[in-house]
Simulated assay, not measured.
Amino acid sequence: MTSHPLPLVRAAAPGRVNLIGEHLDYNGGRCLPIALDRRTVATVAASPDGRHHLHSGELAWHGAVGERADGWASYVVGVLEALGVRDPLAVTIRSDVPVGSGLSSSAALECAVAVAVNACLALGRSDEELVAACIAAETSYVGAPTGGLDQTTALFGRPGHALLLDFADGSRTPVPWRPEPAGLRLLVIDTKVAHRLALGALRGAPAGALAGASSGDGGYAARRAECEAAARTLGLDRLADASPDDLARLTGNELRRARHVVTEQARVAEFVDALVEDDWATVGHLMTASHASLRDDFDVSCAELDAAVEAARDAGAAGARMTGGGFGGSAIALVPVGRADAVEAAVRERFAEDGYESPAVFPVEAAGAAEVVQIS
Rank of each mutant, 00 (worst) to 15 (best):
A182Y: 03
G170T: 11
K192V: 11
G170V: 12
R185K: 14
A162H: 08
I189S: 09
G183M: 02
L187D: 00
V175W: 00
L187C: 07
R178F: 04
P179M: 07
G170R: 11
A168K: 13
L186S: 00
G160L: 02
R158G: 10
L164I: 10
S171P: 10
V188R: 00
A162M: 04
F167E: 10
D190I: 00
D190S: 05
A194W: 09
T191E: 12
P176Q: 09
A194P: 15
A194T: 15
L163N: 03
F167N: 11
G160V: 05
L163F: 03
V175T: 07
V193P: 11
T173P: 09
T173H: 10
A182N: 11
P179Y: 04
V193G: 07
R178V: 10
R172C: 11
A162Y: 02
L163K: 05
G183N: 08
L163Y: 02
K192G: 10
R185A: 14
P174N: 09
D166L: 10
E180C: 02
L184N: 03
T191I: 02
S171T: 15
P159E: 12
R178T: 14
L187A: 03
R172I: 14
P179E: 00
V188C: 06
P181T: 05
T173C: 11
K192R: 15
A162R: 05
V175D: 04
G160C: 09
D166F: 02
V188Y: 01
L163M: 13
S171R: 13
L186W: 00
L187N: 03
A194K: 15
E180K: 13
I189A: 10
R185G: 08
